[in-house]
Structure formats: C-alpha cells, structure tokens
Simulated assay, not measured.
Amino acid sequence: MTNLNDFQKLIAIANEHGITCHAAPEECLIASLPGEDDFLLAFTWSGAVQGETAEHGLIAISVQDITKEITVAAWQIPTYLFSNVLRQAQMLVTAHKDFMLDKNNT
C-alpha cells in the first residue's frame, strides 16, 4: 500500500460490495468468503493500469484455503471490475473443492 488514502479507498470499495474486511499487518485486507468458513479473501492495492490515470488502479486478490494452508487462486483486477470478485472467488473455491474431492477419490 503506497499510502493511507489508497488503503481507505480499498476499504470503501470492499464495503460498497458487502465485503466486511479487517486490516492485516501485511497492509492488506482480510475477509471471510460468505458461505465458505474455511476460505479467506485477501485484498491489497497492486498499482496502476499502465497508461491510465491513478483512478484506474489494480487490486490484487487471493483466496486462501485455511484448513489446507494453501492459496487457491490469486489474480489482479482493475477497481471497476471489483463487483465481480465475490462471484469469481466462489467459483474458484467450488472448482478447488471439486478438484480436491476428485483427487481424494482416485
């Protein structure tokens, strides 16, 4: 996070989309994935889109499987696409759970 304003903006974006976050020491936000108690979302400010104004910043997102202590997915999106983040995270968690189930059944 480059400054407090960016961090506050990230909190506002998350809150605007119904994601209740908590600040972590690594200057990122941590949130539970709704309906998936064993998974966490982490958000941090990642920078700016090349050739665009600072308003078009990138947010880095990762989904963590707490019980297996692994990262399920990580990606970056521009701020204007943040509204899709919960749906994307839930789809990735579903795919991860299906993969782990198939892996354990073989």
Score class of each variant (00 low, 15 high):
T2G: 14
N3Y: 06
L4N: 09
N5E: 12
D6C: 12
D6I: 03
Q8L: 15
K9D: 08
L10E: 11
L10R: 13
L10F: 09
I11M: 11
A12G: 07
A12H: 12
I13C: 10
A14P: 03
A14T: 11
N15E: 14
N15Y: 08
E16N: 15
G18F: 10
T20W: 04
C21H: 07
H22M: 13
H22Y: 07
H22G: 04
H22L: 14
A23Y: 07
A23W: 05
A24N: 00
P25R: 12
P25H: 07
E26N: 15
E27P: 02
E27W: 10
E27L: 15
L29R: 06
L29K: 11
L29I: 07
L29M: 14
S32E: 10
L33M: 06
P34I: 09
P34Q: 04
P34T: 06
G35T: 01
E36S: 05
D37Q: 12
D37P: 11
F39M: 04
F39N: 05
F39R: 07
L40G: 01
L40Q: 03
L40I: 02
L40K: 11
L41D: 04
A42S: 07
A42T: 05
F43T: 02
F43M: 04
F43H: 02
T44E: 06
T44R: 13
W45F: 06
S46Y: 00
G47S: 03
A48C: 00
A48V: 05
A48H: 01
Q50N: 06
Q50L: 09
Q50Y: 07
G51F: 04
A54Q: 03
A54W: 02
A54I: 03
A54P: 02
H56I: 00
H56A: 02
G57K: 01
G57A: 00
L58I: 10
L58H: 02
L58V: 06
A60E: 12
A60I: 04
I61R: 02
S62V: 06
V63H: 04
Q64P: 00
D65C: 08
D65V: 07
D65H: 08
D65G: 05
I66G: 03
I66K: 14
I66Q: 06
K68P: 04
E69C: 12
E69K: 15
I70W: 03
V72T: 09
V72E: 08
A74K: 12
W75H: 01
W75E: 05
Q76T: 09
P78D: 04
Y80S: 06
L81H: 12
S83P: 00
S83Y: 10
N84H: 13
N84T: 11
V85A: 06
V85M: 04
L86F: 09
L86A: 05
R87T: 07
Q88L: 13
Q90H: 07
L92T: 02
L92F: 01
V93T: 13
A95Q: 14
H96A: 08
K97D: 11
D98A: 14
D98Y: 08
F99G: 10
F99T: 10
M100S: 07
M100H: 11
M100Y: 10
M100K: 13
L101V: 09
D102C: 12
K103P: 03
K103Q: 13
K103C: 09
N105Y: 10
T106H: 15
T106W: 13
T106N: 15
